[in-house]
Amino acid sequence: EVTIKANLIFANGSTQTAEFKGTFEKATSEAYAYADTSKKDNGEYTVDVADKGYTLNIKFAG
């Protein structure tokens, strides 16, 4: 089991951190699914992958 950390960075400057656990593939998939659901309210996003994929910096356009 691994933990994927997602740092969500919103257009207004606020941030949120979420953690997803499971296999690398499952946790990563859940992090992207979470970003997709947040996209409806926060606009399109880009992802900067860090820490060999264990940290995702997800920046929303607003």
Score class of each variant (00 low, 15 high):
Gly22Gln: 02
Tyr54Arg: 07
Thr23Gly: 06
Tyr54Met: 11
Thr46Leu: 08
Thr23Asn: 08
Lys39Arg: 12
Ser38Ala: 15
Thr3Met: 08
Thr46Tyr: 10
Ser29Met: 14
Asp36Asn: 11
Gly43Asn: 04
Asp36Glu: 14
Asn42Val: 06
Ala6His: 00
Ser38Asn: 15
Phe20Asp: 00
Asn57Cys: 07
Thr46Asp: 07
Asn7Trp: 06
Ile4Tyr: 00
Ile58Phe: 15
Lys52Arg: 13
Asp41Val: 13
Lys52Tyr: 14
Glu44Val: 09
Lys21Glu: 06
Glu30Thr: 06
Lys40Gln: 13
Asn12Glu: 05
Asp48Tyr: 11
Ile58Ser: 01
Val2Gln: 05
Ser29Trp: 11
Lys52Gln: 14
Tyr54Thr: 07
Thr28His: 06
Gln16Trp: 10
Thr23Ser: 11
Phe10Leu: 08
Ala33Pro: 01
Gly43Asp: 05
Phe20His: 02
Lys26Asn: 12
Thr3Tyr: 06
Tyr34Gly: 02
Asp48Arg: 08
Thr17Met: 10
Ala61His: 14
Ile58Ala: 02
Thr55Trp: 04
Ser29Arg: 14
Glu25Gln: 11
Lys21Cys: 11
Ala18Glu: 10
Ile9Arg: 07
Tyr34Asp: 02
Thr23Ala: 07
Thr23Tyr: 06
Gly13Pro: 00
Thr55Val: 11
Ala61Cys: 13
Ala6Tyr: 00
Gln16Ser: 11
Lys59Gly: 05
Asp48Cys: 14
Thr37Arg: 15
Ser29Phe: 12
Glu44Asp: 13
Thr28Asp: 01
Asn57Glu: 06
Leu8Gln: 01
Val49Tyr: 09
Leu8Tyr: 13
Ser29Cys: 15
Gly62Phe: 08
Val2Pro: 03
Asn57Arg: 04
Asp48Thr: 14
Asn57Lys: 04
Ile4Ser: 01
Ser14Gly: 10
Lys52Met: 14
Ser38Tyr: 15
Glu30Asn: 09
Tyr34Met: 09
Phe10Asp: 02
Ala27Thr: 03
Glu44Thr: 10
Gly22Ser: 04
Thr15Leu: 10
Ser38Gly: 11
Leu56Val: 06
Gly22Glu: 03
Ala50Thr: 13
Asn12Ser: 08
Phe24Arg: 06
Ala35Lys: 00
Leu56Ser: 01
Phe10His: 04
Ala11Ser: 12
Gly62Lys: 09
Leu8Arg: 00
Asp36Gly: 05
Gln16Asn: 09
Lys5Asn: 06
Ala31Thr: 03
Lys26Arg: 12
Ser14Arg: 13
Asn42Ala: 11
Ala50Asn: 08
Gln16His: 13
Ser29Glu: 14
Lys39Thr: 10
Tyr54Phe: 14
Thr55Lys: 04
Asp36Tyr: 05
Asn42Phe: 15
Lys26Cys: 12
Ala50Pro: 03
Asn57Ile: 14
Thr55Gln: 07
Glu44Ser: 12
Leu8Ala: 02
Lys52Phe: 15
Gly62His: 08
Thr37Gln: 15
Gly22Tyr: 01
Ser29Asp: 10
Asn12Lys: 04
Ser38Phe: 15
Tyr45His: 02
Ser14Val: 14
Val47Ser: 04
Gly22Leu: 02
Ala27Arg: 00
Gly43Gln: 05
Thr3Arg: 08
Thr28Ala: 06
Val2Met: 05
Asn42Glu: 10
Asn42Gln: 11
Asp41Gln: 12
Thr15Arg: 12
Glu19Cys: 15
Ala35Pro: 01
Asp36Gln: 08
Lys59Ser: 11
Asn42Gly: 08
Ile58Tyr: 10
Asn42Cys: 13
Gly43Ser: 05
Ser29Tyr: 11
Gln16Ala: 12
Thr17Val: 11
Lys21Ser: 11
Thr15Phe: 12
Asn57Asp: 06
Phe24Tyr: 13
Glu44Ala: 11
Thr23Lys: 06
Thr28Ser: 08
Tyr45Leu: 02
Ile9Asp: 03
Thr55Asn: 04
Phe60Trp: 05
Thr3Ile: 13
Leu8Val: 06
Ser29Ala: 15
Ala31His: 01
Ala61Ile: 14
Asn12Trp: 06
Gly53Lys: 02
Phe60Arg: 00
Leu8Trp: 03
Asp48Gln: 13
Glu30Trp: 06
Glu30Ala: 13
Val47Ala: 05
Glu19Asp: 08
Lys39His: 05
Thr28Pro: 00
Ala33Glu: 11
Tyr32Asp: 02
Ala33Phe: 09
Thr28Asn: 06
Tyr54Asn: 06
Val49Thr: 10
Leu56Pro: 02
Ser14Lys: 14
Lys40Glu: 12
Ile58Cys: 03
Tyr54Lys: 07
Tyr54Glu: 05
Thr46Ser: 10
Phe60Ser: 00
Asp36Arg: 04
Ala50His: 10
Gln16Val: 14
Tyr32Lys: 06
Val47Arg: 01
Ala61Gly: 13
Ala61Val: 14
Ala50Ser: 12
Val2Tyr: 05
Tyr32His: 06
Phe10Tyr: 11
Ala33His: 11
Ala61Leu: 15
Lys52Pro: 03
Glu25Leu: 09
Glu44Arg: 07
Phe10Gly: 02
Ala11Gln: 10
Gly53Arg: 02
Asn7Pro: 00
Leu56Trp: 03
Phe10Met: 08
Ala31Ile: 06
Glu1Val: 14
Thr46Ala: 07
Ala11Thr: 08
Ser29Gln: 15
Gly53Trp: 02
Tyr45Arg: 00
Val49Glu: 07
Asn7Gly: 01
Asp41Ser: 11
Gly53Ile: 02
Leu56Asn: 02
Val2Cys: 11
Asn12Cys: 11
Asp48Ile: 13
Phe20Ala: 01
Glu30Val: 05
Thr46Val: 12
Lys39Ala: 14
Ser38Ile: 15
Thr17Ser: 13
Ala27Trp: 01
Tyr32Arg: 06
Ala31Phe: 02
Asp41Tyr: 13
Thr23His: 07
Ala50Trp: 09
Thr46Phe: 09
Gln16Leu: 14
Lys26Ala: 13
Ala6Pro: 00
Lys40Asp: 10
Asn57Tyr: 11
Thr37Pro: 03
Gly53Leu: 02
Phe10Val: 03
Glu1Gly: 09
Ala61Tyr: 12
Ala31Asp: 01
Gly62Leu: 07
Ala18Ile: 15
Phe24Glu: 04
Asn7Met: 10
Ala11Val: 09
Ala61Asn: 12
Gly22Asp: 05
Ala27Ile: 03
Val49Gly: 04
Ser14Ile: 14
Phe20Asn: 00
Glu19Met: 12
Asp36His: 06
Ala50Glu: 12
Ala18Val: 15
Ser14Ala: 13
Ile9Gln: 08
Ala61Asp: 12
Ala33Leu: 11
Lys39Phe: 09
Ala18Asn: 08
Ala35Leu: 10
Lys5Val: 15
Ala6Val: 15
Asn7Asp: 02
Lys21Leu: 08
Asn7Phe: 11
Thr17Gly: 06
Gly13Cys: 09
Tyr45Trp: 08
Ala6Glu: 00
Phe60Asp: 02
Thr46Met: 08
Tyr34Asn: 03
Thr55Glu: 07
